[in-house]
Nucleic acid binder design. Structure first.
Length: 125
RNA sequence: CCAGCCGGCCGGGCGGCCGCGCGGACAACUGCCGAAAGGCGGUUCGCGAGGAAAGUCCGGGCUCCACGGAAGAACGGUGCCGGAUAACAUCCGGCGGGGGAGACCCCAGGGAAAGUGCAACAGAAAGGAUACCGCCACUUUGGUGGCAAGGGUGAAAUGGUGGGGUAAGAGCCCACCGCACGGCCGGCAACGGACGUGGCACGGUAAACCCCACCGGGAGCAAGACCGAAUAGGGGCGGCAUGCGGGGUAACCCGCGGGGCAUAUUCCGGCCCGCCGUCCGGGUAGGUUGCAGGAGGCGGAUGGCAACAUCCGCCCAAGAUGAAUGGCCGCCACGUUCCUGCCUUUUGGCAGGGGCCAUACAGAACCCGGCUUACAGGCCGGCUGGCAAU
């Protein structure tokens, strides 16, 4: 597991799971809004992506989602904590941003004390 | 060579590394769970967006609902003729009208003697009549009579052009054109043609109501079918429990209590009452299916002007569901731009080198046939006009 962390990040696809994460911590950012929810177990972290219709047509929304997935695959997975669910709400600024900026942004958000705190406090009820 | 018209096609290519979805294989390598069957991985192989996948505007397949058949009413749609098609508002071939020098392009193109309505403003007059300016004759100079050629108004003005004629004019007369009617000829038809007759009536508008002909039951893959937790609730069975007192064999009844509901609150009055196990049925979350072999694609032959049809051969080509087809790099093509050299009267062309961009519109969502809209750049074919050369 330590040498291959990327494959351990799961996806969340159910509406109920997204709604659950929505009740957790929220970190606003330049490129995206990061929502963090704690499941209360020790399983691998999971991530979900939300891109609203407002951000563009289908092609642009797909591109936003794919770039976010790539960012999570490359660097984001290292900084995610087991037992947490993350939802990244993408904005159209992602289309023009470089991957260096996106990686740095996501890493700094994930290392934020509030994000780390979510993993320790199991009282999410 | 330049300008233009029409039709068809492409819409980056090759390679490397990493990653995603679906399917196959596991003979070989390998991790976990399981008694096993097997499951979750790993490995490996194959496949993986469009010409519009888009808008959701028409037409179908498919599914469910409704319905005895048929016809009609209402409502909606279509509207020259013939053909193609499963069907269409689509396509093909014609006809008619309009535009263009031409190749060609455009048309919501049935009916106005079934009826109703409308036409502002302007104008003398807008659908049965009329005369402002004007023209002519007469005149007592006030007018009276005749006329509609010309002017003027309007989206539209009562057939048009030319000639004759007349006081001036007028289909009053004549020729041609138009129109109406009649039979004839050609064509399946829309329609066309020549001929004869008639001096010409019957104005426009049906993307106004309307009339006529034809077509249409409704909703949609979130259709529909199947499996089906947890929790709450319903029913069956079993077990336990079921305040106190009185009556009764018992079901139960009466009194005093407890909790909850409705009522702003209180009292009176009203209504309701437990736990555990197990099974059954409905049903929610969730899952499976529908769901990729079809009016399928490609090639050929035959028939047809064509749309298309028939036959033969080959092929199987995405299947996601908070929704896979992506990220990075190299080379090349294409494009654009700069510099140098050469050619050319110029626009420009060729060669070499460098920089930039490395792409437009846009993402399958049950499936087909169309329509419409968006689109960087490029290729091919046919045709028209002009210039030059032969």
């Amino acid at each position: 597991m330590p040498d291959n962390p990327k494959s351990d990040v799961g996806r969340i696809t159910k509406r109920s799971e997204f709604l659950a994460v929505q009740r957790g911590d929220r970190l606003r950012g330049r490129f995206f809004l990061l929502e963090i929810g704690n499941r209360g177990d020790d399983a691998a972290p999971r991530v979900g992506f939300t891109v609203t219709r407002k951000q563009g047509n289908a092609v642009e929304r797909n591109r936003i989602r794919r770039r976010l997935r790539e960012v999570v695959r490359n660097t984001g997975a290292r900084d995610m904590c087991a037992g947490n669910d993350y939802v990244i709400v993408g904005r159209r600024e992602i289309l023009a941003a470089s991957f260096e900026d996106l990686n740095a942004e996501l890493s700094s958000r994930l290392r934020n004390p509030r994000a780390a705190k979510g993993a320790n406090s199991h009282k999410a009820v």
